[in-house]
Design a protein around this nucleic acid. Structure first.
Lengths: 216, 216
DNA sequence: CACTGGCGTTATAGCTTCTAACTTTCATTA
DNA sequence: TAATGAAAGTTAGAAGCTATAACGCCAGTG
């Protein structure tokens, strides 16, 4: 890599770092080209040398966040023997609570006009695979149903072979329920119940862990 | 009501109606004072006679939406004898899919600076009560736990007496899981699985309906 | 019927993204 | 080391946004 290219990459990273700070402090609207430039000590338009436009910057933030989430989940699960699922699920909630706006960037209201690029979808898939890697064994006898057939078809397109439809379905339920709970908590919708979010979340995990104890 | 006040109210309603159209077509950024004014045949600043600012307009849209959701759920449940829960849950998903952006206005990324007014919280509570009214009977013997104690305390502040902690907890789980599923579907995150969303949703409902068959 | 208060207008400030034109800087290369 | 050319920064400006201020008109009210 050229020296120019090194500086260039450095500047790009700095812009993204500041954008994340702005995101944490003022939400998505805080990610303003001028504001980021000001905090970097340059004028706003200068940033257009580094990012095609504001959307491109946002896209990279989203992409990075997906990768970071996937890596966080993988790291949290790796090395754990007992309670792998809980380790992963807790890591996901912690990740969300550490930077709520960033979580909502991924799973909140979609940004108009944004279309996830290929490698972002790959990162999202990686996160899903990480959770799927914590699935329990499926000893029940296979059941034929339209849902299981469709789930199996999706499973074949995923790069994580050897799972039964029931296990794959569990993965989707995990994804959906964890997101449901986390997004409500992050948005503060549980606040006025005054219930300890930790306990509520743990109960959700119990239900998901108990998936295999009774037919579903 | 004065004639002046009638016209005034009419104009307010028209502005909100158009705002919802803009929301459906272009998302939250489409709710622009100038754009709404143009479609009403007036200039942008004229609308400031009717709404203190853009946030006030958004707040009313959110508030209206909560009330509409609550009424929709109540209407869907009323009169149904068997399968009340499924009727309510399906009504919720249908409501979301009919106007995804409006759903995300309530449950997506919170709008910075927005704080829900009192009667909006009441409407949100009404929607929750509607779902709680479909809960199954709880014949299990009470269990003492920190979670159940906190849930019970929340239940006492709700205006829907006579429910056990387990039933209240079920209500929270319903809220969270339905939202988790619906928001992912509405955001298109299930699209590339190519699984029929209807079937996945029904499976979630089965799990929630089966809450009472096994200890939780 | 007079009048006044509500309504709509234009002008403007200050913000946003983004483009164009111009200048400066500086790493690479001869 | 000095020259060069591309990269990077600047300012100016268009087009959009929210929001306020000042002004005129006219319809509902008294």
């Amino acid at each position: 890599m050229n020296r120019r290219e090194q500086y260039r990459e450095q500047t790009r990273q700095e812009a993204k770092r500041i954008a994340l700070e702005q995101l944490a402090e003022h939400g998505v609207p805080g990610i303003s080209v001028n504001a980021i430039g000001k905090r970097m000590g340059v004028t706003g338009p200068a940033l257009y040398r580094y990012f095609a436009n504001r959307d491109a910057l946002l896209t990279e933030l989203i992409s990075d966040a997906y990768h970071d989430l996937a890596e966080t989940l993988e790291a949290a699960i790796a090395g754990v023997r007992a309670g792998r699922f809980r380790a992963g699920a807790n890591a996901m909630r912690d990740w969300a609570k550490a930077a709520p706006h960033r979580y909502l960037l991924l799973f909140g209201t979609p940004i108009p006009g944004y279309e996830a690029p290929e490698h972002t979808l790959a990162a999202a898939s990686r996160a899903m695979v990480a959770l799927l890697s914590t699935v329990g064994e499926d000893h029940a006898k296979p059941r034929r149903s339209t849902l299981h057939r469709q789930v199996a078809a999706w499973g074949e397109r995923m790069d994580y072979p050897g799972l039964t439809p029931r296990q794959l379905h569990w993965g989707l339920a995990v994804w959906s329920r964890l997101h449901g709970y986390i997004s409500l908590e992050v948005a503060g919708q549980f606040a006025l119940t005054e219930i300890d979010p930790e306990l509520l979340y743990r109960a959700e995990l119990d239900a998901l862990a108990g998936w295999w104890d009774h037919d579903s």
